[in-house]
Design a protein around this nucleic acid. Structure first.
Length: 369
DNA sequence: TTCCAGGCTG
DNA sequence: CAGCCTGGAA
């Protein structure tokens, strides 16, 4: 019964495709936000950079990072010829650092495999690191006017509601992809895809859609159904994320502090952090810090002093940092490789994650206290 | 304070 | 399917 109704809705929507396109594009022409990567004609490289940054990240957050990034790496070749360590500082704080590694690798691949020109073909785009179905569709349609869909989270929600379906229901995704493929405007695919995303971001929002302002309200079976949206969960049905306890050691040498580089994969890939030692929840932190200190600086006489505590939450874990400080003499050299950095250098080099910036703030307030 | 949103990879 | 990160909303 439910399936039958869904099919009927889809069919009628497809017969209304010309109306959907017209209303959506008309609305987009009037209400689209002016964004630095939206140029006329579209800039292929700026589009590539923006699409990587916009994966899992909202426009407002991306804006300052995009501007800085484009000033430093204005062309695809300038990005490809830089080393990853020159690029990461411009991503530090934006999160999902694998995207930065992928973007850099994609730029290199485009230089190697496509003579430095971003490919038009969806398959060739998909073969680039960090480019999935959505990003390939977005670039092909926006930059090259190829009539393919680009279904991100926003579009998925808009189309599901347009079908009268719950966006979070299990089978929603493939149905939305099919509908998107049939709806996409053949003459203006890039604008059409961006219009759907813009609608999802500005009007058809997850929790409080502004149906009266929606250009598709007359066609939408979900209009004015905000009250039916599932309420926000109050008590966590799932267990809370795994908790990690860590002692971080800030080694201070004159005005400098010692940082180590994280591996190129996994958490905070390629970013820098203060040396740490994991410990059990009830471990004696002073002892763990002293142990870490002895391991890194066998000849240090000073004792590490507790500087504060930082809690940082990630998707699947919560990290508790106990921050310790130890001063060393000018000649001191830790037993592991790393880099010395000024305590609060205004630049972003070497790159620190948001978690490490919390530690930095902790150190600064401890130093001034 | 907790919850939620948001693409791609191995 | 788990892992990845942060900002903003509730």
């Amino acid at each position: 019964m439910q399936a039958h109704a869904t099919v009927r809705t889809t069919v009628s929507l497809e017969s209304a495709a010309p109306i959907v396109r017209r209303r959506l594009l008309r609305w987009y022409d009037r209400h689209r936000r002016e964004l630095p990567w939206r140029r006329n004609p579209p800039d292929p490289y700026a589009t590539l950079v923006s699409e990587f940054m916009l994966q899992q990240t909202q426009v407002k957050t991306v804006l300052p990072y995009f501007e800085r990034f484009m000033r430093r790496f204005p062309t695809l070749r300038s990005l490809a010829s830089a080393s990853i360590d020159d690029v990461l500082p411009f991503w530090a704080g934006l999160g999902y650092y694998r995207r930065c590694h992928h973007l850099h690798a994609a730029a290199c691949a485009i230089v190697d495999r496509h003579q430095g020109r971003i490919p038009k073909d969806v398959e060739a785009l998909r073969a680039l690191p960090g480019v999935g179905a959505y990003t390939a569709g977005a670039i092909a349609s926006i930059v090259f006017n190829v009539a393919v869909p680009a279904v991100d989270g926003n579009v998925c929600r808009v189309l599901a509601r347009l079908r009268g379906d719950d966006p979070k229901s299990a089978g929603s995704r493939p149905l939305n992809e099919m509908l998107a493929a049939r709806l996409v405007a053949p003459r203006r695919p890039g604008d059409f895809n961006q219009a759907l995303m813009e609608l999802g971001a500005l009007i058809c929002t997850p929790r409080s859609p502004d149906c009266p302002r929606c250009p598709l309200r007359a066609l939408c079976p979900s209009r004015d159904r905000t009250a039916a949206l599932p309420a926000r969960r109050k008590t966590p049905p799932s267990e809370s994320p795994r908790t990690l306890h860590v002692v971080a050691l800030a080694i201070l040498r004159k005005e400098q502090t010692f940082l180590v580089r994280r591996p190129d994969r996994g958490l905070w890939a390629g970013l820098y952090m203060w040396p740490t030692a994991e410990c059990l929840p009830h471990a004696d932190r002073d002892a763990v810090a002293l142990n870490l200190c002895r391991r890194l600086l066998p000849r240090a006489a000073a004792l590490p002093r507790h500087a504060g505590h930082v809690r940082h939450v990630l998707t699947h874990r919560t990290v508790h940092f106990d921050v310790y400080v130890v001063r060393v003499s000018v000649g001191a050299r830790p037993t592991i490789t790393g880099r010395w950095r000024l305590p609060t250098s205004p630049g972003t080099d070497p790159p620190l994650s948001t978690a490490q910036r919390k530690l930095e703030a902790c150190l600064v307030s401890h130093a001034s206290a």
